[in-house]
Nucleic acid binder design. Structure first.
Lengths: 329, 329
DNA sequence: CCCCCTCTATTAGCGCAACTGATTCATGGG
DNA sequence: CCCATGAATCAGTTGCGCTAATAGAGGGGG
């Protein structure tokens, strides 16, 4: 019996839905349906009563669900316990990151990690977001940091931060005086410095603006946040950037940020940053430790909201949150 | 992760041997080796230190072993709990048995089962032993009773009884006066009534006799014990039969049994009876109940030794005991 | 001391099990 | 009544785990 199948069953039950349970495990709805059916066949017992709508757990199903949950939890605890026992010294963390993750923050993390685990090495490489999943699947990197990640068959996505996006403009700009949030429509026609086409954040940003009927005049495109900020400082136009990456410029008063918000109750535009790593094979102890450090650390330093960490045992390594942002509109 | 792999690992550890651990799970030694290696890969930790001979568990291995054991146990308990909750009424037990299982005993079991589970049906079919595994794999029968069973990929063998074989002869025969066990060599040249060629018990019997250099004159061959007994009663010769099946004839004094034993410490010749059923897919509640009845009942009625039931969690459904009897000499 | 014998690792190849994508089916809501 | 939604089913493909054969590594006996 696959432990994965047990986990799928648990997720199906928790979500009261085969599709969502499947999504939480990064498999197709079909796979989830088949997995549960096979469980029922092997057990020789009906776990789910499909005659009523919505379906319900049978008594056997309830019993099995509770047991399953405990077994799956126990196994994952066991895995962690085995790993914690390992000595991270001598191992290398090969980190692949997008350019614009917030260089300062990242180097702070790395410094703290190096201090905590003296024997470990960290290799950071910055690259185009599209390269990161490939590199991880090819085992050229252990862990990646990128935005709008989508989980895959052998790629685990752990939601990390929710960067709220804000309008950035020079102090002289008319927006700079605003004390209240700007509505997207107010941006119409403005000169706009933005991300390169081909970056996921650009795609999402365009989608967001189009959804609100905003038409901007793109005057420059860059592949790093640093370049965009520079252009805005030089007066090329305004930009929409993660607020947390603008901290220093705001302090130096070379840039001003204005919150971007809709009034219709729609969530503000956020850029979900994720930690990704390969699935199945376990990571070396140093990598595990590094990821633990990233996740456990509050977002206090950056001001970003930590991405909702799924409750114990629920949606373990789901990453569905990030995926649903990218989902069809 | 396959729960089966965890169980293989546990068995390997318990037996301190990859080969025996593999055997206990009815897989090849190679499969066990690969399973453990894959576990180590996935965990990213060494579980077994192969540098010393004999190999030893690493500290991580010990930790993982304990956890594994508990998880596997827990899962099987869970499976059983789910099944116990099911109502056996309305289900049918399709039992396939060899002719010579001891008809009286079997019907007693069936009667008791029918009394215990009024709603269930039992269909007994007697057939040639070679047919039984096939029928079970084709899902034409649920459970089989046969001798010298060998487990297979999708056939579980549960050791059941150890029938000790004894010499049977008419009261007038010279052996009938014996008060001590007969050594095999003393049988030399005797007229012999035995099982049909093609029956496993015949094969094993011949092997046993050849090993002890005994040459008998086969005067008749039958496919059921009842016929053999009849022939012996008629004075055709002697036979070697399960002692427990001779009870009635001995009481009626139509036959005499004499223990058959070697002096060299070799175990007496026994015929292992096994309960077989399909692997993987779970059996219906009535079948489960029936098997439980067969196993839990002491061998008091028959005088056969119950086959050593493996201790809790050890060699679950192994059937290795029976297999090793059939093993290469 | 050498050889053999046992036990585990490794490799190649095969078969099945599980996944995906497409489609059908069932049901409840607008 | 028809459409939207969610689960089941089906066909096709891939990849995993198995077996069988073989290599390699110790340990024990002659």
């Amino acid at each position: 019996m696959h432990l994965e199948a047990l986990n799928i069953f648990c997720d199906v039950v928790r979500h009261q839905s085969f599709s969502r349970g499947a999504l939480a495990n990064s498999v197709s709805q079909s796979a989830a349906s088949q997995a549960v059916r096979q469980l029922e066949r092997r057990l020789g017992a009906q776990l789910i009563d499909r005659s009523r709508r919505p379906w319900q757990l049978t008594p056997e199903g309830k019993l099995f669900f509770q047991g399953c949950q405990e077994i799956v939890d126990r196994y994952h605890e066991l895995e962690e316990a085995v790993q914690r026992r390992q000595d991270p010294s001598g191992y290398t963390v090969r980190l692949a990151s997008i350019y614009s993750v917030g260089l300062h923050d990242l180097s702070q993390y790395v410094d703290r990690f190096r201090a905590a685990v003296p024997g470990a090495h960290v290799d950071i490489e910055y690259m185009h977001p599209d390269e990161i999943p490939t590199r991880i699947q090819n085992d050229q990197s252990d862990v990646g940091l990128l935005a709008f990640a989508t989980p895959g068959r052998d790629l685990t996505v752990v939601p990390w931060r929710q960067q709220t996006m804000a309008v950035a403009c020079p102090p002289a700009h008319r927006f700079a005086q605003r004390t209240t949030a700007i509505g997207p429509w107010e941006l119409n026609g403005a000169a706009f410095v933005t991300f390169d086409r081909g970056l996921p954040v650009r795609r999402e940003l365009d989608r967001y603006l189009r959804r609100h009927g905003v038409d901007l005049e793109v005057v420059a495109e860059f592949d790093t946040i640093e370049n965009i900020k520079q252009a805005v400082e030089d007066g090329a136009g305004i930009a929409i950037l993660p607020e947390s990456t603008l901290r220093r410029e705001v302090e130096r008063q070379t840039l001003v940020t204005v919150a971007l918000d809709t009034l219709d109750g729609e969530a503000a535009f956020v850029r979900p940053l994720s930690i990704v790593h390969r699935r199945r094979r376990r990571l070396n102890p140093a990598v595990t430790q590094f990821i633990r450090l990233l996740r456990l650390d509050g977002a206090g330093q950056t001001g970003d909201a930590p991405a909702g960490r799924p409750a114990k045992a629920e949606d373990r390594y789901a990453g569905a949150g990030a995926a649903s942002v990218t989902g069809t509109p």
